[in-house]
């Protein structure tokens, strides 16, 4: 408690006179004529794969094919298949071998290719990171121009955890050479439902 009050006291003594917040005119920021086209362009920049489907039936077929190929898949989207209700309590050890995960994104950001996913969608916080190949499903009407519109649309406090994901995990820590697949997925596919 002592440090807490000391720090707060020092701040109160040392802080400058109050400065006002800027007036934020988000309407004046960039808007794209074709949000979807820009979103796809941004996804290419972050080395994500893009699929455009009409409705969940097509995803279903893809999912079934992957299953038939013997992949270890975790699905979290009820429209595709049943969802394992044990998923939230699975540990890292349990999830370590997951090859593919299907997760629904709530908002997609055209300027940077990011998709917003919350704990409710991913079911298990580790899932979008520990899987080798992540499929994120996004409905086209949920594509917004920039982060400004994205934050206006989402409520970060409504979930214990939420994340913007832009493509597969990557690193350039060795001589600035880009390597896809650092600690998270080696591949990310965004399925846009038109």
């Amino acid at each position: 408690m002592n440090s807490r009050s000391n720090i707060l006291k020092k701040i109160a003594e040392n802080k400058p006179a109050s400065e006002s917040l800027p007036v934020l005119r988000f309407d004046d920021t960039i808007h794209y004529a074709d949000k979807q086209a820009q979103f796809i362009k941004a996804l290419q920049n972050v080395v994500a794969e893009v699929l455009e489907f009409y409705g969940y039936a097509a995803i279903n077929t893809l999912y079934k094919n992957l299953q038939a190929a013997g992949k270890k898949i975790v699905n979290t989207i009820p429209e595709i298949d049943d969802v394992n209700n044990q998923l939230p309590s699975l540990s890292a050890e349990n999830l370590a071998g997951v090859e593919i995960a299907f997760i629904k994104g709530l908002v997609a950001v055209a300027e940077n290719g990011a998709v917003w996913v919350t704990e409710e969608q991913m079911q298990n916080r580790l899932l979008p990171f520990i899987c080798e190949h992540l499929y994120l499903v996004i409905e086209r009407e949920n594509i917004v121009d920039t982060m400004h519109q994205a934050y206006q649309k989402i409520d970060t406090a409504a979930s214990g955890f939420g994340v913007f994901i832009a493509g597969p995990s990557k690193t350039a820590d060795i001589e600035q050479s880009l390597v896809i697949g650092a600690h998270g997925p080696k591949k990310t596919t965004i399925i846009i439902i038109n």
Binding site: A42, N45, V46, V109, E111, N112, G113, A114, F129, M147, T156, S159, F161, G162, V163, F164, I165, A166, G167, P168, S169, K170, G184
Partner: peptide, 8 residues
């Protein structure tokens, strides 16, 4: 344009 993960 953004980092791969912006975790909240």
């Amino acid at each position: 344009a953004i980092t791969t993960y912006s975790s909240h």
